[in-house]
Amino acid sequence: MKDFFSGLTDSFVKTFITEDRWLMLLQGLATTLEITFFALLLGLLLGFFVAVVRSTYDINNKGRKCRRLSDYVIKVLNVICNIYITVIRGTPVVVQLMIMYFIVFLTSRNGTLAAILSFGINSGAYVAEIVRSGIMSIDKGQFEASRSLGFDYKSTMIFVILPQALKNVLPALANEFIVLLKETSVAGYVAIQDLTYMGNLIRSRTWEAFFPLITVAVIYLAIVLILSYFFKKLERRLRNSDH
């Protein structure tokens, strides 16, 4: 029993204290959070844009002849968005990351930026489908009521449709963010020193697997719990109007 505890202490010290290894984990965490945060922003931006393009096409243009220039623009954009979603959803994110790092970023080798772009572009495709499903779930009568007041399509989207759509898809979006956070753990494939990579590095140096890996897992779990808490709060606030 005494041996067990002294062994545990020994392994704890090796994992965290020796060579200030806890700093490595902290650095890894910072990288993970950085990649996740900017990828999330990029994903939201891309996702919203693609969702609005696709649903605008579905609502206004599907099966109709192009009459104005804007009709052609939206048609072309819709085709591009469809290809984007198909390709991104049809290939593994690790492969996308490696293509970004080893082909697109061949000369610069800026790993973090490559990761942000890869995960952002990847997340955007999923966010797009989530937001689009939200837009399409809004009753047609809401469009008509807004248009009959004299709002154009854009204002109708901004004031009437998107606020309702967002509220409806908030749980799905929260889920996507959690998935994104955890997906960044494959960044080590292209030598980015994120949280998972650092944990594994400590394991390989100390030959101690338990503490580094469990710690990494607990940190991910903690971030997810914090994220979930804030999303629940936001959901509750937005639910004000349903009584």
């Binding site: 009753d139 009568g141 809401q142 008509e144 009521a145 807004s146 248009r147 009959s148 007041l149 004299g150 009437v160 606020p163 309702q164 509220k167 109007s241 349903d242």
Partner: peptide, 16 residues
Amino acid sequence: RQKMGMVFQQFNLFPH
């Protein structure tokens, strides 16, 4: 349309 108000069967008030 600003000059032509419309009232719908399903009301279509903005629920949010």
